[in-house]
Protein backbone atom coordinates (compact mmCIF):
# COMPACT_ATOMS: atom_id res chain seq x y z
CA UNK A 1 0.00 0.00 0.00
CA UNK A 2 2.55 2.50 -1.18
CA UNK A 3 1.76 5.64 -3.07
CA UNK A 4 2.55 5.72 -6.78
CA UNK A 5 5.41 7.86 -7.95
CA UNK A 6 4.81 11.55 -8.25
CA UNK A 7 6.82 14.73 -8.22
CA UNK A 8 6.70 17.19 -5.41
CA UNK A 9 7.23 20.88 -5.47
CA UNK A 10 6.80 23.60 -2.93
CA UNK A 11 5.59 27.06 -3.74
CA UNK A 12 5.51 30.21 -1.69
CA UNK A 13 3.17 32.32 -3.80
CA UNK A 14 -0.30 31.83 -5.17
CA UNK A 15 1.00 32.77 -8.61
CA UNK A 16 3.52 29.96 -8.56
CA UNK A 17 0.88 27.47 -7.46
CA UNK A 18 -1.47 28.60 -10.19
CA UNK A 19 1.23 28.44 -12.78
CA UNK A 20 1.87 24.78 -11.91
CA UNK A 21 -1.85 24.05 -11.98
CA UNK A 22 -2.04 25.55 -15.45
CA UNK A 23 1.01 23.66 -16.61
CA UNK A 24 -0.13 20.24 -15.40
CA UNK A 25 -3.89 20.51 -15.47
CA UNK A 26 -5.57 17.49 -13.92
CA UNK A 27 -2.21 15.87 -13.28
CA UNK A 28 -1.39 18.38 -10.55
CA UNK A 29 -2.87 18.25 -7.08
CA UNK A 30 -2.58 20.88 -4.40
CA UNK A 31 -1.20 19.58 -1.12
CA UNK A 32 -2.21 21.45 2.01
CA UNK A 33 -2.71 19.32 5.13
CA UNK A 34 -2.91 16.22 2.98
CA UNK A 35 -5.05 14.33 5.49
CA UNK A 36 -7.42 13.07 2.83
CA UNK A 37 -5.14 13.21 -0.19
CA UNK A 38 -2.33 11.12 1.29
CA UNK A 39 -4.67 8.31 2.30
CA UNK A 40 -6.00 8.13 -1.26
CA UNK A 41 -2.46 8.22 -2.62
CA UNK A 42 -1.33 5.38 -0.36
CA UNK A 43 -4.27 3.36 -1.63
CA UNK A 44 -3.44 4.33 -5.21
CA UNK A 45 -6.92 5.67 -5.68
CA UNK A 46 -5.44 8.80 -7.15
CA UNK A 47 -2.32 9.07 -9.29
CA UNK A 48 -1.27 12.68 -9.76
CA UNK A 49 1.92 13.56 -11.62
CA UNK A 50 2.86 16.40 -9.33
CA UNK A 51 1.92 17.50 -5.86
CA UNK A 52 2.11 21.22 -5.29
CA UNK A 53 2.74 21.90 -1.63
CA UNK A 54 1.12 25.24 -0.87
CA UNK A 55 1.70 25.29 2.89
CA UNK A 56 4.54 27.75 2.39
CA UNK A 57 2.24 30.49 1.09
CA UNK A 58 2.22 32.81 4.09
CA UNK A 59 -0.77 34.84 2.93
CA UNK A 60 -3.05 31.85 3.31
CA UNK A 61 -2.41 31.36 7.00
CA UNK A 62 -4.07 32.84 10.00
CA UNK A 63 -7.30 33.97 11.60
CA UNK A 64 -8.13 37.66 11.83
CA UNK A 65 -10.99 40.10 12.19
CA UNK A 66 -11.01 42.79 9.58
CA UNK A 67 -13.65 45.08 8.08
CA UNK A 68 -16.47 43.47 9.99
CA UNK A 69 -15.51 39.96 8.91
CA UNK A 70 -13.83 37.03 10.55
CA UNK A 71 -11.30 35.87 8.03
CA UNK A 72 -9.98 32.36 8.15
CA UNK A 73 -7.01 31.74 5.92
CA UNK A 74 -7.29 28.64 3.80
CA UNK A 75 -4.23 27.06 5.38
CA UNK A 76 -5.47 27.56 8.91
CA UNK A 77 -5.28 24.17 10.54
CA UNK A 78 -8.24 22.68 12.37
CA UNK A 79 -6.24 22.87 15.57
CA UNK A 80 -5.67 26.59 15.08
CA UNK A 81 -9.41 27.08 14.97
CA UNK A 82 -9.86 24.80 17.97
CA UNK A 83 -7.48 26.92 20.02
CA UNK A 84 -8.43 30.34 18.69
CA UNK A 85 -9.96 32.66 21.28
CA UNK A 86 -10.95 34.94 18.44
CA UNK A 87 -12.99 32.21 16.78
CA UNK A 88 -14.53 31.16 20.09
CA UNK A 89 -15.67 34.72 20.71
CA UNK A 90 -16.66 35.78 17.22
CA UNK A 91 -17.88 32.63 15.53
CA UNK A 92 -18.48 29.95 18.17
CA UNK A 93 -20.14 27.69 15.61
CA UNK A 94 -16.68 26.67 14.43
CA UNK A 95 -15.49 26.09 17.98
CA UNK A 96 -18.52 23.92 18.61
CA UNK A 97 -17.94 21.90 15.47
CA UNK A 98 -14.21 21.27 15.69
CA UNK A 99 -14.22 18.56 18.40
CA UNK A 100 -16.26 16.40 16.02
CA UNK A 101 -13.60 16.70 13.39
CA UNK A 102 -11.48 13.53 13.31
CA UNK A 103 -8.77 13.29 15.93
CA UNK A 104 -6.06 15.47 17.41
CA UNK A 105 -3.29 14.22 15.16
CA UNK A 106 -5.42 14.88 12.07
CA UNK A 107 -6.51 18.30 13.33
CA UNK A 108 -2.86 19.22 13.73
CA UNK A 109 -2.34 19.01 9.98
CA UNK A 110 -5.65 19.24 8.19
CA UNK A 111 -6.63 22.68 6.97
CA UNK A 112 -9.84 24.65 6.80
CA UNK A 113 -9.40 25.50 3.14
CA UNK A 114 -8.48 21.96 2.24
CA UNK A 115 -11.66 20.66 3.78
CA UNK A 116 -13.82 23.29 2.11
CA UNK A 117 -12.17 22.67 -1.26
CA UNK A 118 -12.55 18.90 -1.00
CA UNK A 119 -16.24 19.50 -0.23
CA UNK A 120 -17.02 16.18 1.37
CA UNK A 121 -20.76 16.39 2.01
CA UNK A 122 -20.28 14.68 5.37
CA UNK A 123 -17.54 17.05 6.52
CA UNK A 124 -18.01 19.73 9.16
CA UNK A 125 -16.40 22.80 7.59
CA UNK A 126 -18.41 22.98 4.37
CA UNK A 127 -21.61 22.81 6.41
CA UNK A 128 -20.36 25.45 8.84
CA UNK A 129 -19.22 27.70 6.00
CA UNK A 130 -22.73 27.55 4.61
CA UNK A 131 -24.50 27.97 7.94
CA UNK A 132 -22.37 30.95 8.93
CA UNK A 133 -22.85 32.49 5.49
CA UNK A 134 -19.19 32.44 4.62
CA UNK A 135 -17.81 34.00 1.51
CA UNK A 136 -14.93 32.30 -0.23
CA UNK A 137 -12.10 34.30 -1.66
CA UNK A 138 -10.64 32.53 -4.65
CA UNK A 139 -7.60 33.53 -6.58
CA UNK A 140 -5.98 32.54 -9.85
CA UNK A 141 -2.83 34.44 -9.06
CA UNK A 142 -3.89 37.59 -10.84
CA UNK A 143 -7.55 38.01 -10.05
CA UNK A 144 -9.51 37.40 -6.90
CA UNK A 145 -13.17 36.60 -6.93
CA UNK A 146 -15.65 36.05 -4.16
CA UNK A 147 -18.22 33.29 -4.02
CA UNK A 148 -20.77 32.80 -1.30
CA UNK A 149 -20.60 29.37 0.32
CA UNK A 150 -24.18 28.87 -0.83
CA UNK A 151 -23.01 29.04 -4.44
CA UNK A 152 -19.73 27.25 -4.01
CA UNK A 153 -20.82 23.67 -3.35
CA UNK A 154 -22.26 22.38 -6.60
CA UNK A 155 -22.44 18.61 -6.40
CA UNK A 156 -20.68 15.63 -4.94
CA UNK A 157 -17.04 16.76 -4.52
CA UNK A 158 -17.76 19.44 -7.11
CA UNK A 159 -17.31 23.10 -6.36
CA UNK A 160 -17.15 26.39 -8.17
CA UNK A 161 -13.36 26.41 -7.77
CA UNK A 162 -11.78 26.71 -11.21
CA UNK A 163 -8.95 24.36 -12.12
CA UNK A 164 -6.48 27.24 -11.89
CA UNK A 165 -7.73 28.69 -8.63
CA UNK A 166 -6.92 28.40 -4.96
CA UNK A 167 -9.06 29.20 -1.97
CA UNK A 168 -7.33 32.08 -0.24
CA UNK A 169 -9.61 32.48 2.74
CA UNK A 170 -13.17 32.29 3.89
CA UNK A 171 -14.73 35.42 5.35
CA UNK A 172 -17.63 35.29 7.73
CA UNK A 173 -19.83 38.25 8.61
CA UNK A 174 -19.42 38.99 12.30
CA UNK A 175 -22.62 37.88 13.96
CA UNK A 176 -24.83 40.35 15.77
CA UNK A 177 -25.55 40.08 19.46
CA UNK A 178 -28.69 38.04 18.93
CA UNK A 179 -27.06 35.51 16.69
CA UNK A 180 -26.66 32.07 18.15
CA UNK A 181 -25.25 28.84 16.84
CA UNK A 182 -25.66 25.15 17.35
CA UNK A 183 -23.72 22.24 15.96
CA UNK A 184 -24.13 18.55 16.52
CA UNK A 185 -23.71 15.33 14.66
CA UNK A 186 -24.19 11.61 15.01
CA UNK A 187 -21.23 9.37 14.32
CA UNK A 188 -20.86 5.72 15.22
CA UNK A 189 -17.51 6.43 16.83
CA UNK A 190 -16.04 9.68 18.03
CA UNK A 191 -14.20 11.39 15.21
CA UNK A 192 -15.72 9.30 12.42
CA UNK A 193 -17.44 10.97 9.52
CA UNK A 194 -20.95 11.78 10.64
CA UNK A 195 -23.99 9.79 9.60
CA UNK A 196 -25.88 13.05 9.85
CA UNK A 197 -24.90 16.40 11.29
CA UNK A 198 -26.40 19.82 11.60
CA UNK A 199 -25.07 23.36 11.80
CA UNK A 200 -27.54 26.09 12.68
CA UNK A 201 -27.26 29.84 12.95
CA UNK A 202 -30.16 32.04 13.96
CA UNK A 203 -31.17 35.24 15.70
CA UNK A 204 -33.01 34.67 18.94
CA UNK A 205 -35.04 37.51 20.26
CA UNK A 206 -37.54 37.04 23.06
CA UNK A 207 -37.53 33.31 22.42
CA UNK A 208 -38.41 33.77 18.78
CA UNK A 209 -36.17 32.50 16.03
CA UNK A 210 -35.25 34.60 13.04
CA UNK A 211 -32.94 34.68 10.06
CA UNK A 212 -32.20 31.00 10.48
CA UNK A 213 -29.62 29.19 8.43
CA UNK A 214 -29.97 25.45 8.90
CA UNK A 215 -27.46 23.23 7.18
CA UNK A 216 -27.19 19.45 7.28
CA UNK A 217 -24.18 17.34 6.53
CA UNK A 218 -24.22 13.75 5.36
CA UNK A 219 -27.66 13.88 3.77
CA UNK A 220 -27.00 14.89 0.19
CA UNK A 221 -24.32 15.48 -2.39
CA UNK A 222 -23.37 18.79 -0.80
CA UNK A 223 -23.93 20.37 2.56
CA UNK A 224 -27.72 20.75 2.46
CA UNK A 225 -29.39 23.96 3.46
CA UNK A 226 -32.88 23.26 4.85
CA UNK A 227 -34.80 26.20 3.47
CA UNK A 228 -38.15 24.61 4.15
CA UNK A 229 -37.31 24.05 7.77
CA UNK A 230 -36.00 27.59 8.04
CA UNK A 231 -39.28 28.94 6.71
CA UNK A 232 -41.23 26.78 9.10
CA UNK A 233 -39.23 27.98 12.07
CA UNK A 234 -38.50 31.64 11.31
CA UNK A 235 -40.55 33.91 13.53
CA UNK A 236 -41.57 31.01 15.73
CA UNK A 237 -40.78 29.87 19.24
CA UNK A 238 -40.15 26.25 18.54
CA UNK A 239 -43.24 24.67 20.05
CA UNK A 240 -43.93 21.04 19.13
CA UNK A 241 -46.30 21.76 16.23
CA UNK A 242 -43.81 24.15 14.67
CA UNK A 243 -41.01 21.65 15.08
CA UNK A 244 -43.15 18.93 13.58
CA UNK A 245 -43.83 21.14 10.56
CA UNK A 246 -40.13 21.89 10.22
CA UNK A 247 -39.24 18.21 10.41
CA UNK A 248 -41.91 17.41 7.84
CA UNK A 249 -40.42 19.92 5.45
CA UNK A 250 -37.05 18.18 5.60
CA UNK A 251 -38.23 15.66 3.04
CA UNK A 252 -37.95 18.47 0.51
CA UNK A 253 -34.76 19.92 1.97
CA UNK A 254 -32.44 16.94 2.11
CA UNK A 255 -31.65 14.02 -0.16
CA UNK A 256 -29.81 11.34 1.79
CA UNK A 257 -28.68 8.09 0.26
CA UNK A 258 -27.83 4.75 1.82
CA UNK A 259 -24.32 4.21 3.07
CA UNK A 260 -22.62 1.09 4.41
CA UNK A 261 -24.43 1.10 7.71
CA UNK A 262 -27.32 3.53 7.50
CA UNK A 263 -30.24 3.74 5.11
CA UNK A 264 -31.55 6.93 3.60
CA UNK A 265 -34.72 6.45 5.63
CA UNK A 266 -32.78 6.31 8.87
CA UNK A 267 -30.79 9.39 7.90
CA UNK A 268 -33.97 11.30 7.19
CA UNK A 269 -35.32 10.29 10.56
CA UNK A 270 -32.07 11.23 12.29
CA UNK A 271 -32.00 14.60 10.54
CA UNK A 272 -35.37 15.34 12.13
CA UNK A 273 -34.07 14.34 15.56
CA UNK A 274 -31.02 16.53 15.15
CA UNK A 275 -33.10 19.48 13.96
CA UNK A 276 -35.20 19.22 17.06
CA UNK A 277 -32.14 19.03 19.28
CA UNK A 278 -30.34 21.87 17.54
CA UNK A 279 -33.35 24.16 17.78
CA UNK A 280 -33.66 23.38 21.46
CA UNK A 281 -30.01 24.18 21.94
CA UNK A 282 -30.36 27.39 19.97
CA UNK A 283 -33.27 28.52 22.12
CA UNK A 284 -31.65 27.47 25.35
CA UNK A 285 -28.11 28.56 24.84
CA UNK A 286 -25.56 26.51 26.66
CA UNK A 287 -27.39 23.25 26.34
CA UNK A 288 -25.57 20.66 24.40
CA UNK A 289 -27.55 19.78 21.31
Amino acid sequence: MKAPRFAYTRVTTVADAVSLLRQHGDDARLLAGGQTLLATLNMRLSEPVVLVDITGIEALHGVAVQDGFLRIGALTRHVDIERSELVAQRLPLLTQAVPFLAHAAIRNRGTFGGSVAFADPAAEWPACALAADGELILSNGTNERRVMAGDFFIDLYQTDLHPDELIIAVEFPLPGRQRRFAFTELARRHGDYAIVGIAVAGDISGGVMGDLRIVFLGVGNTPMRALGAETALNGKRGDPAVLAAAIASLSEDIAPSDDLYTSAAAKSHLAGVLLQRAVKSLLHEGETP
Binding site: T262, S263, A266, H269
Partner: peptide, 13 residues
Protein backbone atom coordinates in the same frame (compact mmCIF):
# COMPACT_ATOMS: atom_id res chain seq x y z
CA UNK B 1 -26.81 -3.82 16.75
CA UNK B 2 -26.48 -0.71 14.64
CA UNK B 3 -28.61 2.41 15.12
CA UNK B 4 -30.31 1.40 11.88
CA UNK B 5 -31.42 -1.95 13.27
CA UNK B 6 -32.59 -0.46 16.54
CA UNK B 7 -34.55 2.28 14.79
CA UNK B 8 -36.20 -0.34 12.60
CA UNK B 9 -37.07 -2.46 15.61
CA UNK B 10 -38.61 0.61 17.21
CA UNK B 11 -40.57 1.20 14.04
CA UNK B 12 -39.08 4.68 13.70
CA UNK B 13 -38.23 4.08 10.07
Amino acid sequence: FTPEKILRALNKI
